[in-house]
Write a protein that binds this DNA or RNA. Structure first.
Lengths: 180, 180, 180, 180
DNA sequence: GATGAATGAGAATTCATTCAT
DNA sequence: TATGAATGAATTCTCATTCAT
């Protein structure tokens, strides 16, 4: 693509490519070069749209957050009003540590990236809150909060162990917390 | 220190320095050079004892794990057999997100580092298990497990938010889980 | 400012901003981007009016030369026909190495820039000549020339040393040259 | 040259190459890359020995200062005790603006580089002083100082004009200053 | 005329790693 | 055993310049 030709989606495509890079190489591996290659654009194009590595990371997190929101929304759609929350929630974590492990690892890496990057705190925070808000539509606030924490803990642990969660394990934990 | 002088603690001191480096610059910032400077040894000394960056990271994690074990042991020492577990556990997380935030961030970074490094999974796993085992001496297995997950989730969330946990918040969560 | 709106002073304002940039970041730091920011205009506006970095530099030098001429004219206005030239000239260099140091450094940088840029030689030359011509209205040609050289040398030396000239030092030199 | 093979002169050779680079491309053009190429060493070698551009520049100035000292010493050797100072000094500046123009430009660029680099002030200062000290061995202190300033001014002006000084011009100026 | 997206080139740096000493 | 010089590879970032709009 010669100079002067405008490509209005380019910024978006680079951001999307950034997520792929994080999936492949981790947050540390998210470089302008890697994003450029993944997006199929010249290096200069990535530095033009995202002048710092931090900008690139932030864009990746925003995009990943949208994915997460969509995932949660879809999950919630499949729940009856009087569904068994512990069981359905267990299904969610089992799916994330199994078939969707790749995506979950990316999301956790991005979430945890805020530990050292104050600029990302707000984003990571909103991320965490999304699950609590979803759960709060199906149980009381305290339980929703406690369940979110357990989901966080379970996911992180399972992702680190590298083995998918077992449905019954997860369900037992959630049931314990929900106090049923 | 001239050549030929024996310094048997040097390996240990470098590993200890590696933790300081992680505290200052994050896992990404852990380089042979940075460790050398922090430990006050020549560059060659760090590459001699830890031939790869990965080795250095592993040593740092091992050291940090020992710190965590000691911290847990000390915490447990201060607990009565019939202490109020939710309350004392809340004290632990409040301390870690407040005065000990720095140390906690380092530990979480090292813990999470295993997400992309299969070689570190066993270590990170043992790390997580240490708390569960400790708690299991004071409550039933399922509760111990659920509490550990909540601790993980709470710590991570608070560290990311950058504000210390409030004692009553944490206690409420733990009490909900413990079912008291 | 939307497209199509005419802004006849824009070229001038960019040139003026270029001097500010040189003051802040040196000749090396004079870039289209920096000038754009300093002038508060879009990048394209600077490249439109000054198609190359060299053009920009030349414009800055021209503007700075006008400042220098004005400074000299004002200085001359304050001189009596039978003023003590060595003393008044000492006042000029003391002022330039003291309160006006910043401006003087910029002017010297721009003046010296011609060392490697044949296209700027004429401008820099005229710059130097301005002082000689001024002095020649108050003394003979040879003395005017010698004084100019001493002013150049003194200014450069003092600006590099970073300390203002002392009035008596400068006066002694000039008096020696003027042969009073 | 493979790793592990030590080349003790390398640092010196890079510094010497740095001067060549300044001669060719100016202070702005003094980059690690350019020095590496001029010295015939890999890029990493230049960054190893001179970790910043500033370090490289400083080394170049130190080397150039030695050249200048040698040049002055040689010049002084050719002077009789009762030589005609204005005439011999005129010879020096004529030589520097003529056959040795290249070298003189480099030296001025390096000298002036200190205007924006406080770390180089001491070096540039010592440079200037070398001539004064030399001249002071052949005339009184005030005259030596005034002559140095005139030399500085004359050289800078002639180098910028790009034409060699005329012997009689220079001699007239110096004679005026020396008061003969 | 005015703009800013686009891009290739190159900058300073940092580093893991190797290996002669 | 211990060291640090050496080096290639990468990284972030900055820019002049071009050119469709």
């Amino acid at each position: 693509m010669p100079k002067g030709v405008v490509d209005p989606d380019r910024r978006d495509r680079i951001a999307r490519a950034a997520i792929e890079v994080v999936a492949t190489a981790g947050v540390d591996g998210l470089t302008h070069r890697a994003a450029a290659e993944a997006a199929g654009v010249p290096l200069g194009s990535t530095t033009y749209h995202f002048s710092s590595r931090e900008d690139l990371l932030e864009a990746a997190i925003e995009k990943a957050k949208l994915d997460w929101d969509a995932f949660l929304a879809e999950w919630e759609t499949g729940i009856d009003r009087d569904a068994d929350l512990p069981r359905t929630l267990a299904g969610l974590v089992v799916e994330m540590t199994g078939p969707k492990r790749e995506q979950a690892v990316v999301e956790y890496e991005l979430y945890v990236a805020a530990l050292r990057r104050p600029g990302l705190q707000a984003l990571s925070d909103a991320w965490d809150e999304a699950l609590t808000l979803t759960l709060a539509r199906h149980t009381d606030a305290l339980t929703a909060d406690a369940l979110t924490l357990a989901v966080d803990g379970l996911l992180l642990r399972s992702l680190i162990r590298g083995v998918p969660l077992r449905m019954d394990e997860a369900e037992a934990i959630f049931r314990r917390i929900a106090g049923d």
